[in-house]
Design a binder for these strands. Structure first.
Length: 323
DNA sequence: CGATGTCAAGGAATC
DNA sequence: GATTCCTTGACATCG
């Protein structure tokens, strides 16, 4: 028997929508303190809905590492008390938190300045979770980065970037397979060299897996990289299947043409049938958590849960139980 | 008020 | 070497 938290990312759509951070522009002096007020409200929502896992927005501390805005750089220290309190609240509710810096955080960039700014961003994310007193399961997920110069050179550059990180940051950062360059086997090998655990993203795996690694093996590869006592996690999403449209400017008017979605595009919701198959196949062994990436956010997770229950799967206090 | 432009940030493809 | 897309949301500004 295995247990699994199911989480969602950043934005709360339920209850009419809740703000996830102080997103005002720098001219209006946004502050982490405001974001933490929002986060507190979100924790309340998570408690009410029995949602045990949540990805906080990377920009929780606005401009915290912006090179031209040093006046914003001390927010984490300024909010030490508030951070400790909210971290304690998350612990009390047993909610697993994480974050996921996006495409601009490239630790393996060819440009050393960009590697340094990526490292600064990761230090900040780690400092935030440290100030909250969160356990090791609160990880900061990143992609390996760009593939310039080939996989080998790109992985070597990642290690150069890794060298820039403090022990505190290294203890939080985990690496994820992506949908075009770094497949699960490559990421697992890189993990052996730097020690970062691996998050396996199943949709990315469907998009890019030149080594043809079977699901079970990919799962084992990823989970072997996690330290004893820290529950691993995976990313799960269903591909978008509806037609979108492409907008193109022709002169002064906008022309809309139908566009077929890429496999990697996230759907609004999660296909419960595919999810059930995957979880019955992969569950029943070690515990692991599942971060759902769907445009429907919390609503997608709540709907998925209802559908799993209707299918006879067991959910207890928001945790999925398999086997 | 609704529509449109802009945002801190990189990489890769294309011209 | 410069431009555009990728992809996403919300602030900010314009009409």
């Amino acid at each position: 028997m295995s247990t699994h938290r199911i989480g969602f990312a950043v934005k709360v759509l339920g209850e009419g929508g809740l703000p996830s951070h102080d997103a005002r522009r720098w001219q209006s002096d946004p502050h982490l303190r405001v974001s933490l007020g929002y986060l507190e409200a979100i924790l309340g929502y998570l408690e009410r809905k029995e949602l045990p896992m949540y990805r906080v927005v990377t920009q929780l501390a606005p401009y915290a590492t912006h090179p031209d805005l040093p006046q914003f750089h001390g927010q984490i220290e300024e909010c030490a008390e508030e951070l400790a309190a909210i971290g304690a609240r998350a612990a009390e509710l047993d909610i697993r938190l994480s974050s996921h810096p996006g495409q601009y955080t490239v630790l393996n960039s060819e440009d050393e300045r960009i590697r340094r700014s990526a490292a600064a961003e990761l230090e900040s994310q780690a400092a935030l979770f440290d100030a909250m007193g969160l356990p090791a399961e609160a990880v900061v997920v990143i992609h390996v980065g760009g593939a310039a110069g080939g996989m080998e050179a790109a992985c070597d550059r990642f290690l150069e970037g890794w060298e820039l990180l403090s022990d505190a940051a290294r203890a939080r950062v985990v690496i994820e397979n992506d949908d075009r360059s770094f497949a699960i086997r490559t990421v697992a090998e890189l993990s052996k060299r730097c020690g970062a655990p691996v998050v396996w993203d199943i949709l990315h795996h469907r998009c890019h897996d030149p080594d043809q690694v079977p699901d079970r093996e990919a799962l084992d590869l990823a989970f072997a990289t996690w330290p004893e006592g820290v529950v691993p996690k995976i990313h799960y999403s269903s591909p978008r299947l509806d037609m979108g449209e492409k907008k193109r400017k022709v002169g002064r008017r906008v022309e809309r043409t139908p566009a077929l979605p890429q496999l990697r595009a996230h759907a609004d919701l999660v296909d419960p049938i595919a999810f059930e198959y995957v979880m019955r196949d992969l569950g029943g062994g070690p515990d692991f958590d599942v971060m759902v990436e769907a445009k429907g956010k919390d609503l997608a997770v709540l709907r998925l849960r209802e559908q799993l229950i209707a299918r006879g799967m067991e959910i207890e206090a928001g945790w999925l139980i398999v086997g």
